[in-house]
């Protein structure tokens, strides 16, 4: 069973996850601006920048994160940002929530000058997340687990990160067993998505280069978190 402490931990994570969503006026823009590749690229970079701000606010609410070494906090955010953003986008796109304008978002992503060889694995990932029909608690915990991955580049005290990630994995494992008694493999499937995310991380670096080639500019916050010069 999930212990009292684990219930408190889960509640904090889910509340933070729900509190930090992309601002509605930003999402509405998806419907308003015209559909040129240029405009789509600008909108997507604006949304990605907002997603990074939301990600940092969510991360600050993960119990124990702010007590980590400051440099390690930055290393974890830089190392996990792309994966956490793909996970969040997959959850938004598969939620088909009316106020997220998912069709408009998908349309703009497809017509934003992104290279085809990157588009395919990305939408395959979105589909694979959609098929899991994840509960909000699972989404929030999986995002926190992604951020607290100890073996990111430049993390000095990996044990301290492991000590934060372990309890999240334990709660998620129990939650999956309780919520999906007919699918004993469900927890393993969730962790399998984290492996897929690492592959996407690699594609992402290449995608940025292809966009760079067409002289597309990213915002200062995206340049910092994606290490783009």
């Amino acid at each position: 069973a999930i212990t009292k402490d684990q219930q408190v931990l889960m509640k904090v994570i889910v509340e933070a996850y729900n509190r930090h969503q992309i601002p509605q006026d930003m999402a509405k823009k998806l419907l308003q601006e015209q559909y040129s590749a240029e405009e789509n690229f600008l909108l997507l970079t604006e949304m990605a920048t907002s997603q990074v701000q939301v990600l940092v606010e969510f991360t600050k609410n993960i119990p124990g994160f702010l007590s980590l070494d400051h440099e390690d906090q930055i290393a974890l955010l830089k190392g996990s940002a792309v994966e956490a953003m793909f996970l969040r986008s997959a959850q938004v796109l598969s939620s088909k929530k009316p106020n997220c304008h998912t069709d408009a978002l998908e349309e703009r992503i497809r017509k934003s000058g992104m290279s085809e060889e990157f588009m395919t694995p990305m939408f395959n990932f979105y589909k694979s997340i959609g098929k899991l029909h994840m509960m909000q608690e699972e989404q929030a915990l999986l995002t926190a687990i992604t951020i607290l991955t100890p073996d990111r580049p430049y993390v000095k005290d990996q044990q301290a990160v492991e000590r934060l990630q372990e309890p999240m994995l334990d709660v998620l494992r129990k939650l999956c067993a309780l919520q999906h008694p007919q699918e004993p493999q469900y927890f393993a499937h969730l962790l399998g998505r984290l492996t897929e995310l690492r592959t996407l991380n690699h594609y992402h670096a290449e995608m940025l280069t292809s966009w760079r080639v067409n002289d597309h500019k990213f915002t200062p916050l995206l340049c910092e978190i994606w290490d783009v010069q």
Partner: peptide, 16 residues
Amino acid sequence: EEPSLLKKLLLAPANS
């Protein structure tokens, strides 16, 4: 060196 935007966001009070 450019001040880190990430550091600024991290140091801002939570839920700002």
